[in-house]
């Protein structure tokens, strides 16, 4: 099989997944708002994206033009690179790295940089506040992820995502360490600037780092956010939900079904859960969620030792 096939599939899944995520997002908002749902909701992302494309891109006074242009492109690249280590079937993966989880962790950390650059480069107060706030919360959220992912890698005794998926052939990690899945989903919300973890593009900042975006720039940033959401759902499915393992259906179909489920859960949480003020969230992260993540890691470590 040509090495290009997994790459083509990856971009195809990112594109279709982003459209599905946008449609689910519209549907969830309408459900919460009590508006009627119609089949046309599925077409709304196209209309909305198209609308951005026909509008003017505005440059603010003295922006950091290069970083403003680069931020959405880098965000999209991080989403694609992060997803490149996730197998959709045995051996069907773009980059089957021995340290795939480390590459994913690097993408998480660089996301903080990219979101900061996006807020910084408009040279305006509200985007900059969004950027600073995101860094403050994002760093703690990334720490969560490190503990949780190491705990997921322990039973596989490998940092390769394909090995972690294989280690779940009999028991999925969500059964072994259910809090790990919840904590990783929280990180997913943070990486994609959504709902209770949206400190960058939040409603209380009138759009935050996106407040000065218009036209194609807005379309690009929104598309990159959606692509990262797809990437997070792929990683969640692989690391906690057994990846392509499952009865009756072919492995890749299982993978896509699980990804769609994770997407729906993340989109639902976006619209259903309130966002805490940053100081309150930091307290929650450091005093409850990080100790919980460490506890999960310790328990999984003990389980692996005793099992041996």
């Amino acid at each position: 099989m040509s090495a290009a096939v997994p790459i083509i599939v990856l971009f195809y899944v990112l594109g279709v997944g982003a459209w599905l995520a946008a449609a689910l997002d519209r549907a969830a908002l309408k459900l919460m708002a009590g508006r009627p749902l119609a089949a046309a909701t599925m077409a709304e992302p196209w209309r909305q994206g198209d609308l951005h494309l026909v509008r003017q891109r505005i440059w603010t006074e003295r922006p950091d033009a290069m970083n403003w242009l680069l931020a959405p492109a880098l965000y999209l690249i991080l989403a694609a690179v992060g997803m490149s280590v996730v197998p959709f079937a045995p051996g069907f993966v773009v980059a089957d790295l021995d340290a795939g989880i480390v590459l994913w962790g690097a993408c998480e950390a660089l996301t903080v940089v990219v979101v900061f650059l996006h807020g910084w480069s408009a040279n305006a107060p509200l985007p900059l506040i969004g950027a600073y706030r995101y860094v403050a919360i994002g760093l703690s959220a990334m720490l969560l992820s490190m503990f949780v992912l190491i705990a997921a890698a322990l039973p596989a005794e490998s940092l390769a995502v394909s090995a972690i998926v294989e280690s779940q052939a009999s028991v999925w990690n969500v059964v072994r360490q259910p809090p790990g899945l919840l904590l990783f989903l929280m990180l997913g919300l943070s990486l994609t600037l959504r709902g209770p973890f949206d400190y960058a593009d939040a409603s209380d900042l009138a759009g935050g780092t996106s407040a000065e975006d218009s036209g194609p720039a807005r379309a690009a940033w929104q598309a990159a956010r959606l692509a990262m959401l797809v990437s997070v759902s792929a990683m969640t499915s692989a690391v906690f939900l057994g990846g392509y393992h499952g009865p009756w259906l072919p492995g890749p179909v299982w993978m896509l079904v699980k990804m769609a489920g994770v997407l729906a859960a993340l989109v639902g949480a976006t619209h259903m859960l309130a966002r805490l003020p940053p100081a309150r969230m930091l307290t929650l992260l450091w005093t409850v969620l990080l100790p919980l993540a460490f506890l999960v890691l310790a328990l999984v470590g003990a389980e692996v030792l005793l099992w041996k």
Binding site: A28, L29, K30, L31, M32, A33, G34, R35, G195, P196, D198, A202, S203, D204, H271, L273, A274, R275
Partner: peptide
Amino acid sequence: LLRPLGLAGAAERFQRTAAAQTGDLKI
């Protein structure tokens, strides 16, 4: 108050009920 907390959908539902002066308060 719900809007700055990131709950645009719920806020709209409250607003809709206020405008219509009727609605399911349990929801």
